[in-house]
């Protein structure tokens, strides 16, 4: 095992980890805000990837140019999900936790079925984008350009999320998270904040989806695996913690890449799951979760 191989592995783990982090950030934002785990999160990623594919084929625009369009589209999808389903699920007075889990689960199955219905089950990909199949070589290490671009965009999206948290709106978000009953007294429309929170969470996963569509296969099933990793990432970082999602995403990406070196390919995820369970033994609410 050469130094180059290890460096290469660490780097690809970092690049993938940043994408995991952004997917997880969307999930974490929604959870932190209203204590709802979105089990359709992977399907939102899948929707973003298919939207990129369709718009790319229809308009002939490069995925990079589609980034803002898909992000806005997913923002709308997120808000719609909140208004149509989640708001109702939150108003249920009985079995609230379970209703939330199974409403988003049913939604996930529905979206997967819809994708299957419209696009069929086969694997697709975008091969003729600007970045496709290009690499940069740096001191003997090859970096695929789509992955590099994806991680840069993910970092920018994180910076944006951080910047939003410093604005007036971000403070309203934080206040709603702290006490969702009391914010009504100071003139914050809780329902609107929740809807925007869902929009932002979906937009974050939308951005990740566009960048992923540049180099990853696209199919109705693609979301399931990313979703599982996102849950692990969020639980590892601590629900509701933005920085936690970033660090946990990178940790998960690195553990996955390194386990691929020593374990069989089909077992590479066992490594990250084991690390996650081990951490939970000592930090039941994740690395940066509030106790």
């Amino acid at each position: 095992m050469t130094a180059e191989l290890i460096l290469q592995t660490l780097l690809s783990g970092l690049l993938m980890g940043l994408i995991y982090a952004l997917v997880a950030a969307g999930l974490s934002l929604i959870f932190g805000l209203m204590d709802v785990v979105n089990f359709a999160h992977g399907e939102l990623l899948m929707v973003a990837m298919f939207a990129t594919l369709v718009l790319h084929n229809l308009l002939g625009l490069d995925p990079l140019l589609l980034l803002p369009i898909v992000a806005v589209l997913l923002f709308g999808v997120g808000m719609a999900i909140y208004r149509l389903l989640i708001a109702r699920a939150l108003s249920v007075t009985f079995n609230t936790g379970m209703v939330q889990i199974f409403v988003t689960f049913g939604l996930a199955i529905f979206i997967r079925g819809a994708a299957q219905f419209f696009f069929g089950g086969e694997f697709r990909s975008i091969n003729n984008s600007w970045l496709a199949n290009k690499t940069v070589a740096l001191a003997g290490i090859y970096i695929p350009l789509p992955q590099l671009a994806a991680s840069v965009v993910c970092l920018l999206a994180f910076a944006l999320l951080l910047a939003i948290s410093k604005t007036e709106f971000g403070r309203a978000l934080e206040a709603t998270r702290e006490d969702r009953e009391a914010v009504g007294l100071i003139g914050i429309d809780r329902d609107r904040i929740f809807a925007i929170g869902w929009g932002m969470g979906a937009a974050a996963v939308g951005v990740a989806g566009v960048m992923l569509a540049n180099f990853y296969y696209i199919s109705p099933q693609v979301g399931a695996n990313f979703a599982l990793i996102a849950y692990v990432t969020v639980a590892l970082g601590g629900f509701g913690s933005l920085g936690g999602a970033l660090i946990a995403g990178i940790v998960i990406g690195e553990v996955e890449a390194l386990s691929a070196l020593v374990l069989e390919p089909s077992l590479k995820q066992v490594g990250m799951f084991a690390i996650y369970l081990a951490v939970l033994m000592f930090r039941p609410r994740g690395l940066f979760g509030r106790l």
Partner: peptide, 11 residues
């Protein structure tokens, strides 16, 4: 159908 049914009954 399966997914929609789950959502509807749960809500």
């Amino acid at each position: 159908i399966y997914g929609a049914l789950i959502v509807l009954i749960a809500l």
